[in-house]
Write a protein that binds this DNA or RNA. Structure first.
Length: 733
DNA sequence: CAGACAAGGCTTTTT
DNA sequence: GCCTTGTCTG
């Protein structure tokens, strides 16, 4: 049987799988089958009796990859491997924290704070410290704190390094933030990695337990590990030293969040006795795409070097196109998709459109919707970050962890129940002076004479309901509680009263969340509790929520595309300043990372690759909102040798193609009549608006902001909207 | 205290 | 355009 496993692999892959003792570095180029190697290696270790499932730790980059890998191992071996430890760094750390939490004293009911929660907490901390949020934005402080955590710099060390007044303030905030997180029994994403390390240092017996347990450790995407992750692997593998890391330095794209490419570059130094296997045969792309990508990335200095080759045919050359602006670019994308689907037997989900920034998706969405090409977006405004969803989740979070004051503040007066700002401030003051948490203050509300009897009553009504649910939360299934909470606190009522289109959307989202909880309850029969559910969704990646089988074109950032492949890949926005971004021009390391990102994008393509850039693009930046930029083509385009590219197709947009007037930023031709003539919209046209519904255009005028349309909605509401923003769809009267 | 309305910032990538 | 924040009124 074990030989049968190996038969599916090429000689290098076999070598990687068969090396079962000691450190192993697998340098796996794009599309060289590294997931396959990891999967087979786990299967092989189990098959030959080198390890039991619970003695293997495998770290993947997404939860989806973890589930797929586990599933494939089970298919290969025909036995379940439930006790395997496989997941993302964050998921595995959360698991360790739950197990060890009780003993360490923080309990196992902690909450995971996302960036939004963190920022709110930082804002509170700043208010408490009397530091104005005017010049120093909480969001920026959040970023700085996270950055320092990624480098394993704590508040003490940061304080010592603080050079100026602002940094001294940040250091104060950092201290208080850390304290507040503890009081809230909350961990942020960085804590999830740092806390286990902290525990290992303070409780060596716990470290020893895991060192003994994990006889074999496998890590995927090792080039994107940060300092904390590096130390975790180092410490956990110290006893058995059977550590296999797989990665590709050319695909390291997370430097900005603390990933250190040195981790993979110096693996040999860390483990002088390590074996190195290079996987250079690519099974994904045509030779043309591969050669072009190789030539591009060869310009980078900091790499171990390899040369990918493919047995696949040479294939078609890379197509590059350029057009007028983002709307025109989107039109070209739509054309490419239609053409590819017609000339090959592709379906929509064979096509991916990749971009550097999430904001670029809007123009694409607009166009694809108009021409009826189905699409699905990965990332962007995330489902779990929507207001109505966060409100609902806040209720659940309080039930699981009443110390979570961010969640409590969020819903203490939502839906409004007569506990206004003044009452809240009184409660907070009481909490601070009595040195108790906010939830406790609500429970003891009758001890707060500053609040009138009616106010006290309102508070205790609220907190008593919560207390009732808290009795249930550990035992009842998540779905049951969720439905009861929505019912008791009338969380849908807000949105059912007027039923605008926006309300409908919010209701849909709430129902979708309830469905997902129902689904969770069914698929986790052994522990269908709310706290497990909350942890699950907190650690989801964007890709985890994406369904590759749904027949739609996929729109996502280049970062999200890592690890995926599509027959047709279209990369848009290849303009100097956007990709690569302006701010990377003066820093070689940053520029090399942008180049690697482009390399990742190119190597997603199996058959055809399209590269697009637009002459002019409207961008929102901190300095200049909504201005249009003139762009030069990306320097990366010229770094691809001509022999792999078709002559660039320069197309001027035909007047009839215009989704909106193209020249209004030129400041040359802005007379109303002319723009109105150029516009896709005419007076009298019928359009549909996302929240206002159907309406008729009564007037068109131009202003500095764009084309202003006066529209009569539902025959009664007169509104002025900016055409470029309004997300309008043309409809028949 | 609640709701309506205006004003201003925003977008580099994500666990 | 979106979203958050601040201000005003009943």
């Amino acid at each position: 049987m074990s030989q049968a496993l190996l038969d599916h692999l090429n000689p290098e892959q076999q070598r990687a799988v068969k090396k079962t003792g000691g450190p192993l570095l697998v340098l796996a180029g794009a599309g060289s089958g590294k997931t396959r190697v990891l999967t087979y290696k786990i299967a092989y270790l189990l098959e030959i009796g080198q390890a039991n499932p619970y003695e293997i730790l495998a770290v993947t980059f997404t939860n989806k990859a973890a589930n797929e890998m586990k599933h494939r191992v089970e298919t290969l071996l025909q036995v379940p491997v439930d006790s395997l430890w496989i997941g993302t760094f964050h998921a595995i750390c959360a698991r360790i924290l739950r197990i060890e939490g009780k003993r360490i004293g923080f309990g196992s009911n902690f909450t995971i704070y996302d960036v939004d929660d963190q920022t709110r907490l930082i804002q509170q901390v700043m208010e408490g410290l009397n530091i104005s949020t005017h010049n120093l934005k909480p969001r920026k402080v959040q970023y700085i704190i996270s950055d320092n955590k990624n480098k394993m710099i704590g508040p003490e060390q940061y304080e010592r390094m603080a050079a100026d007044f602002t940094e001294q303030n940040i250091s104060k905030i950092y201290y208080e933030y850390k304290k507040a997180m503890q009081q809230n029994a909350a961990f942020d994403f960085d804590d999830l990695l740092l806390k286990p390390l902290d525990i290992f240092t303070r409780y060596p017996d716990i470290l020893e337990k895991y060192q003994k347990k994990f006889k074999h450790i496998l890590v995927d995407e090792y080039q994107d590990t940060n300092k904390a992750q590096y130390h975790l692997i180092r410490q956990l593998s110290a006893s058995h030293r059977n550590v296999c890391v797989v990665g590709d330095e050319d695909q390291s794209i997370y430097r900005w969040r603390g990933a250190d490419i040195e981790n993979i570059l110096s693996f040999e130094k860390d483990y002088p006795d390590c074996e190195i296997v290079r996987l250079e045969q690519n099974y994904r792309s045509t030779q043309t795409i591969l050669d072009a990508a190789n030539a591009l990335v060869a310009r980078n200095k900091r790499r171990l070097g390899k040369n990918l080759w493919s047995k696949k045919p040479v294939g078609v050359k890379i197509t590059s196109l350029y057009g007028d602006d983002e709307a025109h670019e989107a039109l070209q994308v739509a054309d490419i998709i239609k053409r590819e689907l017609m000339s090959h037997q592709y379906s929509y989900n064979d096509v991916a459109v990749l971009y550097r920034t999430n904001a670029q998706s809007r123009a694409l969405e607009d166009k694809l919707r108009r021409v009826n090409i189905p699409y699905s977006i990965v990332g962007g405004t995330r489902f779990y970050e929507r207001k109505e969803i966060k409100d609902l989740l806040a209720y659940f979070r309080i039930l699981v962890n009443p110390k979570d004051s961010i969640a409590l503040r969020r819903v203490i007066n939502f839906p409004t129940r007569g506990i206004g700002l003044t009452s809240q401030q009184t409660l907070e003051r009481h909490a601070v002076t009595q040195n108790i948490n906010l939830y406790q203050a609500l429970i003891e509300v009758e001890n707060i004479p500053e609040l009138s009897k009616t106010r006290q009553q309102r508070v205790s009504d609220f907190v008593n309901k919560l207390e009732d649910f808290r009795q249930e939360v550990a035992t009842s299934p998540a779905y049951q509680i969720a439905v009861e909470v929505v019912d008791t606190f009338r969380l849908k009522k807000q949105y059912t009263e007027n039923m605008t289109l926006e309300d409908e959307g919010r209701l849909e989202n709430i129902n979708e969340l309830l469905n997902s909880i129902a689904n969770f309850t069914e698929t986790h029969p052994e522990e269908p509790t709310l706290d497990k559910y909350l942890e699950d969704i907190a650690l989801l990646t964007d890709i985890d929520r994406w369904d590759p089988n749904y027949d739609a074109v996929t729109l996502m950032t280049l970062h999200s595309a890592k690890g995926l492949e599509f027959p047709v890949v279209i990369i848009v926005g290849l303009e100097d300043g956007l990709f690569p971004l302006f701010r990377t021009f003066n820093n070689d390391d940053d520029l090399e990372e942008e180049r690697r990102l482009f390399y990742v994008g190119m190597t997603r393509a199996q058959e055809s690759l399209y590269l697009l850039w637009a002459n002019q693009r409207r961008r929102f930046t901190a300095e200049d909102s909504g201005m249009s930029f003139r762009n030069m083509p990306s320097r990366f385009l010229t770094e691809i040798p001509d022999q792999y590219k078709e002559e660039p197709i320069v197309s001027r947009r035909q007047p009839g193609d215009r989704s909106f007037p193209g020249k209004e930023y030129d400041k040359v031709s802005t007379s109303t009549a002319q723009v109105a003539e150029d516009s896709l919209f005419k007076i009298g046209d019928w359009v549909k608006h996302g929240s206002f519904g159907k309406g008729q255009i009564l007037g068109i005028e131009t202003s500095g902001a764009g084309t202003k349309l006066t529209i009569l909605f539902n025959q009664k509401e007169l509104k002025k909207v900016i055409a470029e923003y309004a997300n309008l769809q043309m409809v028949q009267s």
